[in-house]
Design a protein around this nucleic acid. Structure first.
Lengths: 344, 344
DNA sequence: ATTATGAATGTAATCGATTACATAGAGATA
DNA sequence: TATCTCTATGTAATCGATTACATTCATAAT
């Protein structure tokens, strides 16, 4: 009992016009007489006509869709960015396709394939660890203009991107701890090959130097943004000759892993040790203690990335200098309870 | 310098065969002589040919895509289900489209439109609050078979669905508190019109009755799964004549909101009050105290939903009784620190 | 009155793949 | 040898919309 849906032909017949006119009624209604336009719309309503996207896409050589590459869909951090993207893209009548790069690497499919299969018009990449081979493929196939990086980016390639001011965030964190009296500050980093890891570490080091704080190699602890890497960091901290009084974590998740494991070891935050995170995920306000952290607006990251992409995809726009400099979103120190004055 | 991509024509010419043969090489390679097949594949490689999805979709009347409806993309709970779906769908060479129903309701676009625009072949809905008007549209247009509900479902419609055993989860929670000596047990519910809210509340009430526990209307506190509703619940608890000794929260988020706000009011968990959550999100293990909760496997929920959908979309499968009973996934009590023996 | 202009609409080619049907040729069978 | 069968492949219609170009007709300009 499936109602075979009406085609443009059927509408045309019903309205007593040609298919061209129907098509125009949809895309350039101002070209038509008011009378014809009305009768076409009446016919559309009465037939329940819907354009067939496949046919339109074939003819116009467009896909009407944008792909978002997410390193880990299950991670709330990314999903908020995705929400922003979805909001902004959906408004413009594009569809949002999602691929988890974790699942993806195993399939052997190249990212550029999505373009070549004419399945998408543009791509937003939240994953900065795209291989240079993939990047080259984008250039070779002339689709570099239709890609925007959000949150992460690729070091050394000036592809358009939207990012938070990670460097400044790290400096704000260190300065805050400094102002609370802390001098011995450790840092749990993100994963090794990650641009965010790098940028935040640099920011921290720069501020440390500026404030002339003491430095020990062991105070830089390798992590990977995860809860577990926060937990693992505790072991190292406990084993240190010179124990830090405060820890700046590369993500809120790391901070949670750290604080809970410190607690399990009888070390209280912030009484015995101050901790500061990065991201300000929703939960940070509701952690015990409330987490002092650096806020980045993840939804805005997504919205801006989508805007940048749409702009780049619009052939009308003058996009010459679009890629020159990344869109930089400001970050903000959010003071809660997890970092306190030293020796209180 | 955009390399205009090769069409099936070009491959055919290059290989010295017809387009039909090239098409067959791709879809039914066993029909061809080994020699022809080889030469076609050689031509495909040398031309860098890729099938044009729009053209294929037009001709085959398929979309090659599945839509996932998410109530709130930014919510980590849903994004994990999405990750499971993405994994399972991606394996089968379908694309995953995502729509946030929050953004969506404002656009006035009906869900059924996605089907009618021939943009998707199937849909997985994580949102149980679909209006009955929308549901009717699915039936009218004969696409009911291509829809699967995951996590949530619609009460009163026997559409195919995959869900956790929420009722059992609630009973496990109450029984656990009972075994710890608690008798006065409060419950913070989910949002009013939600099937999960209803099912969990029923489970809790059933177990309470079975164990012959005391009952007070005020011990049922209206919430909405959010952190904030956990915070709000504290105020009500503090104002109660007869204060409960334990609280069963409809979600982990609620539990976090509750615990952190109790802490701010000088009430310690679990010493002064026991709290138990529902979901076991990743963070629960790392909360302070570790959250005792009911685990549901969100990724599995997604994977199974995808499997069910693909099965239903496959015209070969005997799908007659597919919708009869929902796929029920088991839940599990995870004991951590937030619920302790009464009067310890 | 004649021609030019321009607005409104129609005709038909086109996008690129799939596939029903047609055909050729090899081998089997009588 | 004539006929049949079956396999491998080709021909061309088809999916449904868009749009370049053609046409018609009303109005303005000469």
């Amino acid at each position: 009992m499936v109602q075979k849906s009406a085609r443009i032909q059927d509408v045309a017949r019903q309205a007593g016009v040609s298919t061209a006119t129907v098509s125009r009624a949809l895309s350039n209604p101002e070209l038509l007489t008011e009378a014809t336009r009305e009768s076409v719309f009446a016919a559309i309503r009465s037939t329940g006509y819907r354009v067939n996207r496949a046919a339109r896409n074939l003819r116009t050589r467009q896909a009407g869709a944008v792909l978002v590459l997410v390193p880990n869909l299950g991670n709330p951090f990314f999903s908020q960015i995705l929400a922003g993207i979805s909001e902004a893209i959906g408004e413009r009548d594009y569809s949002v396709l999602v691929v988890d790069t974790n699942d993806h690497t195993s399939t052997g499919k190249l990212l550029v394939d999505y373009f070549l299969d004419s399945q998408i018009d543009g791509m937003i990449c939240l994953d900065g660890t795209v291989s240079s081979h993939e990047l080259k493929q984008f250039e070779v196939n002339g689709v570099s203009e239709q890609i925007v990086f959000a949150c992460e980016w690729v070091h050394g390639y000036d592809l358009p991107s939207v990012r938070s001011d990670n460097n400044r965030g790290a400096r704000l964190a260190v300065r805050h701890l400094y102002e609370l009296g802390h001098r011995k500050i450790a840092h749990v980093t993100g994963p090794q090959d990650n641009v965010l890891t790098h940028t935040r570490r640099e920011g921290m080091l720069a501020e440390r130097e500026r404030l002339d704080l003491p430095f020990r190699e062991e105070w830089i602890i390798r992590g990977d943004f995860s809860l577990e890497s926060g937990r693992n960091a505790v072991e190292k901290i406990l084993a240190m000759d010179e124990r830090p009084t405060a820890v700046f974590c590369a993500s809120d998740q790391v901070a949670f892993g750290l604080i809970s494991t410190l607690a399990a070891n009888g070390i209280k935050v912030p009484e015995d040790m101050s901790v500061i995170g990065f991201d300000d995920i929703e939960l940070s306000e509701y952690y015990v203690p409330g987490l002092t952290t650096i806020r980045q607006d993840r939804r805005a990251l997504g919205v801006q990335a989508a805007a940048l992409l749409l702009e780049g995809m619009d052939p009308a726009g003058a996009v010459a200098d679009r890629r020159k400099s990344p869109v930089m979103l400001d970050v903000e120190l959010v003071v809660r309870a997890s970092a306190a004055a030293l020796g209180r």
